[in-house]
Design a protein around this nucleic acid. Structure first.
Length: 887
RNA sequence: GGACGAAUAGCUCAGCUGGUUAGAGCACUUGAUUUACAUUCAAGGGGUCGAAGGUUCAAAUCCUUCUUCGUCCACCA
């Protein structure tokens, strides 16, 4: 069979991703004979296009899922997308604005129609891209957070929590995005340090000439909504002013000086302006002191009628204007530069406004309790474990969750208000909370009901993902199979996500799991690093530093993308395009090694069972490579089990490239006619495909298909079985010795600048029969690997003039070089070597002479050191003799 | 302000429970190639393991302090 000299991933990738899906290999079902292993995908936004973060996240999941599938688990990888309320609405609003319209121009129904159209047209984009990556999801189950069934779960959860008293409505200061014109949760407001100013404003004291209290603020425009000035009751400077009346400049409102412990006397002037409607702390103070709440702003950030002359100005415009006017009135004392953290909308990056409005909230403390316990007691484990503390710290200080959003794309809040038809009584003011559309008001019977305008936070649906994707709460009683599936696969096994998602999603899923399923949603949480550019900046479209994974797939192949990402994924990844060469080169190496074997080996050799072969019939390199394979297999499995994916790949890389290709395949080059050699080569290759498949599914499936046709698809093969008996310690040790000998000869070759045209011979001088036998048995291999013309093995120290020498273990290589050798140079080299060994020996002997060491160190350490010392002594002796022979 | 992490070759990092002469990839130098692969092979140079103390027979590894970076959280107006 002919293979091209390059791995043409372009011809291969699509073929297999189609093949896997068409053959339904990834469809999971209840199988009592198998253990379940389920992972739910972090649902990407429907607006999403695959970026490096997705590529990393999904490759990790795919490795684990493919690995577990091969290990005999019934694996389910549940895919789907998230409706991403604000993000999606923003996308469609941008389309609208190209037509010169806003969502309010077209109205809610038309806007929703457009949103669904958009979803139908583009919503599968990222799903298709995940298929290109090789993700082995159960695609039949692909869910969307706004599927009808899923939406039922969301409404049901709202009603349940409301009935439990865990959902309430109230007027509070929330994070408001004036551009999106919606409330945001605390997590959705991203704090960034901004260079701003601290403005010192003077508020005149009523009835006193030229007397002021100076307050400091970063947002001077909010002074228009001030309803008090607060000082610390212990602050001696201000004691006399407490309860005095001030005149609020520009709006001429009379406000009181109040005393509140919250005020930090050391900051600013020690006196704080209090704006209860525009600042969370002031809001609390306002409640404590029963102050008036003056809202000076429209939802779009433009000042309203309460702002007097400033009405109609944007908040930042007003800031300038207020300062200018106060300055003219000589009421601006000074301006100091001041850096402080300012919240930004996580979707559009507009500066968030603390804004007073009526919203729905979830009471989190009761939900957090079991979720905290589960992690504290280790029922849920984080990998790496350091994230445990981050999680616990947040959960211990959890605050209520604002879940209403003033947008249209999402799950509409299942609350209705009785508008009444004349006969309405007081009771009808109670909202009607119902999972289904109520027909009439339960109090007055009126059918004139109006649903709450708001929708729910996107995360209020995604926190149900691990069970709502199965069809929970199964209101359709006939849906028995789905119930069984949930019972079988829940709790799921592992969750793979990025650190910034811990609060948004992971913590909330754990809470929902306990609240609605009475159990953890998953037992392991693997937190992977962030993908950054070579300079360490986050990859982002706006920075223009993003590398498109699809471009890498086109140019280097999906396996190259996957392999390169994972081998760099120990912590945060610093990625540039060249980083993907390692994966491309490795996939190509796998391809070419297979090509070599295919060119020499007939397919009948494929039935060779590595695990059952009689080792005694094999040559040393074959025994060695089989043992190396099993050592690697065991370590790779252990690494994946511990979520150490980059380590697993390094092991594979080292084994396949440095051991199998560079040594084994090289040693057998002239021995394809031997009985066992082709079988071992093919056997190791086939088993390597299995071991490598979770990491590089495409190239391995392609090669498996070429080499092992008839055994079925590689992706559903069993993981090679391991047992200690398959290891061959002796072969490993012997082969290491011979590799050292070969390397030593090669070094001498390079050092003496011996080109390939020149043939040299080597004499090995050994002390033990065992070494002699080892060399004799492998002379051909050594000759080939070290490119030697002739080799002899002797047991006496030959006195050879003009010879380069090298010592490996107990074996001395003597290479007569005739005229090429510069005796002085060689002498110096040997002397240097001897000096170094001597130093090592002295250090060792000092340690061995230390009674404490001999007494306290573990016996095997002492034994090892003694052995080493003996070997070093022999070596030093040898080197001295070599020098003598050069005299 | 709090919490957590990192510092090892020019660069990116591994080094897990203290125990051979601290490793890998990239980059660099030199050489090889009618041979499966130049997306290759071989050989080499390059390290006071951030600093200072301490514990120990033994420290890159454990402890303390410091320095420098990073991440997350937080209402200092």
């Amino acid at each position: 069979m002919e293979l091209s000299p390059r791995f043409n991933f372009n011809e291969v990738d699509e073929k297999w991703s189609k093949f896997w899906v068409e053959n339904n290999f990834f469809h999971a079902h209840v199988d009592p004979a198998k253990k379940p292993y389920a992972v739910v995908i972090p649902p990407p936004n429907v607006t999403g296009i695959l970026h490096m973060g997705h590529a990393l996240n999904n490759t990790l999941q795919d490795i684990m899922i493919r690995y577990k599938r091969m290990r005999g688990f019934e694996t389910l990888w549940m895919p789907g997308t998230d409706h991403a309320g604000i993000a999606t609405q923003n996308v469609v609003e941008r389309q609208l604005s190209k037509e010169g319209k806003t969502r309010h121009d077209v109205g809610r129904d038309e806007m929703l129609r457009r949103l669904w159209d958009w979803k139908k047209q583009y919503g599968d984009t990222i799903i298709n891209q995940l298929k290109k990556l090789g993700a082995s999801c159960d695609w039949e189950r692909t869910r969307f957070t706004m599927d009808e069934e899923y939406s039922k779960a969301v409404r049901s959860v709202f009603v349940r929590l409301y009935e439990k008293g865990l959902i309430y409505q109230g007027e509070y200061i929330i994070n408001w995005c004036p551009r999106c014109q919606t409330a945001l949760s605390d997590e959705e407001a991203e704090h960034r340090d901004l260079q701003g100013n601290l403005y010192y404003l003077r508020y005149p004291i009523k009835g006193e000439e030229n007397a002021f209290i100076t307050v400091a603020t970063t947002r001077p425009e909010t002074m228009l909504g001030d309803t008090a000035v607060a000082v610390n009751p212990k602050d001696k400077r201000y004691k006399k002013y407490i309860d005095k009346t001030l005149t609020l400049p520009l709006v001429d409102r009379e406000i009181k000086v109040i005393a509140d412990e919250f005020v930090d006397s050391k900051f600013g002037t020690g006196a704080v302006k209090v704006t209860p409607a525009h600042d969370p702390n002031d809001f609390a103070m306002g409640k404590r002191h029963k102050l008036e709440f003056v809202n000076i702003m429209h939802p779009n950030g433009v000042l309203n009628e309460r702002a007097g002359d400033f009405e109609g100005m944007d908040r930042f415009e007003a800031r300038e204007a207020v300062i200018e006017e106060l300055s003219e009135l000589k009421l601006l004392e000074k301006i100091e530069p001041h850096t402080h953290a300012v919240g930004h909308c996580y979707r559009c990056h507009t500066v968030v406004e603390p804004y007073l409005s009526k919203q729905w909230f979830v009471r989190m403390e009761p939900l957090a309790k079991p979720a905290l316990e589960a992690v504290r007691k280790g029922k849920i484990k984080f990998y790496p474990s350091l994230w445990t503390k981050v999680y616990l710290n947040w959960m211990e200080n959890i605050r209520d969750w604002c879940i209403s959003r003033q947008i249209w794309w999402g799950h509409r809040i299942p609350v209705w208000y009785c508008v009444g038809d004349g006969q309405c009584k007081l009771a009808c003011k109670e909202p009607i909370v119902s999972a289904t559309v109520p027909e009439k008001c339960p109090h007055c019977g009126s059918g004139n009901l109006k649903q709450d305008e708001d929708v729910l936070d996107t995360w209020f649906s995604s926190w149900l993902w691990p069970f709502a994707t199965f069809g929970w709460p199964f209101e359709d009683k006939a849906n028995k199979p789905a119930r069984e599936e949930l019972a079988y696969f829940y709790p799921t096994a592992s969750l793979f996500t990025a650190p910034e998602i811990i609060f948004f999603w992971v913590a909330r899923m754990i809470m929902a799991g306990f609240e609605f399923m009475g159990d953890i949603p998953f037992s392991d949480v693997y937190i992977h690093g962030t993908v950054r550019d070579a300079k360490g900046r986050k990859m982002s479209k706006s920075l223009g530093n993003a590398i498109d994974p699809l471009e890498i797939i086109r140019e280097y192949g999906a396996d190259a993308l996957r392999f390169s990402l994972i081998i760099n994924s120990g912590q945060d990844l610093f990625i540039s395009k060249e980083k993907f060469e390692i994966g491309r080169n490795f996939a190509n190496k796998v391809w070419n090694a297979s090509r070599l074997i295919l060119m020499r080996v007939s397919h009948s050799s494929a039935d060779f069972d590595l695990a059952k072969v009689d080792r005694r019939a094999l040559d040393l390199p074959s025994r060695w490579i089989i043992s190396r394979f099993y050592v690697t297999l065991e370590k790779v499995g252990a690494a994946v089990d511990r979520y150490r994916f980059s380590e697993a790949e390094s092991l594979i890389y080292e084994f396949f490239w440095s051991n199998f290709c560079d040594w084994y395949l090289e040693t057998i080059k002239d021995r394809w006619a031997d009985e066992n050699v082709p079988k071992v080569a093919l056997g190791v290759l086939e088993n390597s495909f299995k071991m490598m498949h979770p990491f590089m599914p495409f190239v391995t499936e392609e090669l498996w298909d070429k080499i092992s046709k008839g055994k079925g698809a590689l992706c559903i093969q069993g993981w090679p079985a391991f047992s200690r008996k398959l290891l061959d310690k002796e072969a490993e040790k012997d082969m290491e010795a011979l590799r050292g000998v070969v390397s030593a000869v090669r070094t001498v070759r390079t050092q003496w600048n011996i080109t390939s045209g020149q043939t040299i011979s080597c004499c090995f001088i050994v002390r033990t029969r065992k070494d002699a036998a080892l060399l004799e048995a492998n002379l051909v291999m050594i000759k080939n690997m070290a490119r030697l013309e002739s080799v002899t093995v002797g047991q006496t120290l030959a006195k050879v003039k003009n010879a380069a020498t090298a010592l490996v273990g107990g074996i001395k290589c003597v290479i007569p070089l005739g005229g090429v050798i510069d005796v002085d140079k060689e002498k110096k080299r040997i002397l240097d070597q001897a000096g170094e060994q001597q130093r090592l020996l002295e250090g060792l002997e000092k340690r061995l002479g230390n009674k404490e060491f001999v007494k306290k160190a573990p016996a095997e350490v002492v034994a090892k050191e003694k052995e080493r010392s003996a070997a070093l002594q022999a070596k030093v002796r040898e080197l001295k003799q070599v020098i003598a022979s050069l005299e």
